[in-house]
Amino acid sequence: MKHQEAKLILRTHRADGRYRPDDPLFADALAGADKDPVLAEWLAREHAVDAVVAHKLDGIQPPADLRQSILVGARASRLRRRGWRRPLWLAAAAALVIAATLPAVIRLRGPAAVDSTAFGEFSLAHLATAHEGHAGAPGALAIATALATAPRPLSTSVSLDVDQLRTVGCQRFDVFGREVFEICFEREGTWYHLYVMRGDARTRLARGTAPLVLEHDGAAAAVWASADTVYSLVTRSGASALRTLL
């Protein structure tokens, strides 16, 4: 085997000798290096450079929050799949219930005016009658993670952009003639659901005031407005769980 040919083969050889492919060419090239001190010296230098590059690569640390994001995202996906395993009749019944109850709960029909009570009652009704588990599109998981760690009170620290929620694939509903987005997140062992919509001239919500809290059948919702966005934070764990975040 020629010197140059042996170099070409040995360039892919690992210093520790592990994981060699079952290829006699490696054995021939290594045998050549045993007999050729120049080639052996070159191979030792190659291995040394490889070790340095591998060490540099090994020293790169992932972002501090990546592990937690992965675990939160995967948990959300598993819960979502459990939700989809529910019998079809249950899903159909849930759809019928929400269709029947929403007009009464919301009180306001059509793409008309919306107030805090209506938005809060919608989010409570949706969570109670039609929720399919803690859904989370991959792109939405970063937002869920941010909400899980956002400083308190969320009513002042959270600022979401409706256009971004649409882009990343958050769960979307058409209610009040508007788009409403939902993000599910877990915080200190409790699941929360944040419903978000864009405010406009017809959303009668006072900005900058304390959140309005509604309770129904053990669940609770807190509604507030900030800039041009309206939020309803809901949990099945009651008003006390909400107040820890607000």
Partner: peptide, 26 residues
Amino acid sequence: YRFALSLARSAADAADLTQQTFFIWA
């Protein structure tokens, strides 16, 4: 993540790729 960083050339894209991979696994 290190493999993703070498491919994607951006820390944010590498983190997304890694997270997406485990999401698909889940």
